[in-house]
Design a protein around this nucleic acid. Structure first.
Length: 262
DNA sequence: ATGGTAGCGCTGCTA
């Protein structure tokens, strides 16, 4: 068994956040980190910077919007983009990438926001979460070591929202979205952060506007879902709020878990 | 809490 630190961070433009990412990698020292919203085309990905920092990498992006990546210092093999389910929104959407890192199947996801309950993007979000479930169920067994990490744009329970009343009728908290996330848990995954912090109101995203971070007006929408073999061996989990402070922060904080992987 | 900020890129979209 070896200790593996697995992280996820929606960086909201890797170009702008490169310095903050380098700083965070330097002190958090994750073995694997999933990134979302790189907002870069593959050709613009700063691969040499990642290699200088000691990471192999795989990126899936088409520029301007979305873009996901996996960085690993425990190897990165069998890289796959999209869901490979015959739909045609990938690669242009660039919301999912999967690789095998140190014996763990790691997927970095940037789930569609949904905009509002009456928007067609909301239906697309629900379908996307179903496709994610089908991809995971089709590419692995519950007994495998599997990690699905990223910005789910779903707060699984009311405890994950600073004010459920303020979000009533909005995306991120609807029953249909929560059921889609629950499908992944029913398949055999565990919300690793919540397994370690059962009652705490701790968030991973705060709107840039209106001083929401300083008011504590956040939501926990970034998650690391682990299959049981990994989830049973989590020794630590943390959302690093300090990375949401200071100069040029992302609107998301990074999350990491420490697991004993075989 | 119905305004507000950030990023991309040059106009308004996305979040």
């Amino acid at each position: 068994m070896t200790l593996m630190r697995i992280a996820t961070w929606n960086v909201n433009s890797l170009k702008v956040r490169l310095g903050r990412l380098e700083e965070w990698l330097g002190y958090a020292q994750p073995d694997v980190i999933c990134l979302q919203e790189t907002k870069l085309a593959d050709a613009a990905f700063p691969g040499m910077d990642m290699e200088r920092l000691g990471y192999e990498w795989a990126h899936h992006g088409s520029g301007r919007w979305n873009g996901v990546a996996i960085l690993s210092r425990v190897g990165i093999e069998n890289v796959r983009t999209g869901f490979d389910d015959g739909h045609d929104d990938e690669p242009s959407e660039a919301r999912v990438i999967t690789a095998d890192c140190g014996g763990v199947q790691v997927t970095s996801v940037y789930v569609p926001n949904g905009r509002s309950l009456d928007d067609e993007m909301y239906r697309m979000k629900l379908d996307w979460l179903d496709r994610l479930h089908d991809f995971i169920a089709g590419s692995s067994k519950a007994g495998d070591e599997v990690a699905v990490c990223g910005d789910f744009n779903v707060a699984p329970h009311d405890i994950d929202v600073y004010s459920p009343k303020a979000f009533a009728g909005s995306t991120h908290v609807s029953d249909d979205e929560r059921k889609r996330v629950q499908r992944l848990l029913d398949w055999g995954m565990v919300d690793a952060f919540r397994s370690r912090w059962s009652q705490e109101k701790l968030y991973s995203w705060w709107d840039y506007r209106a001083g929401n971070f300083h008011k504590g007006f956040g939501m926990r929408i970034d998650h690391i879902l682990l299959s049981k073999p990994l989830a049973d061996n989590v020794s630590f989990a943390l959302i690093d709020r300090n990375a949401r402070k200071g100069q040029l922060p992302s609107d998301h904080a990074p999350l990491f878990v420490d697991v004993e992987a075989s």
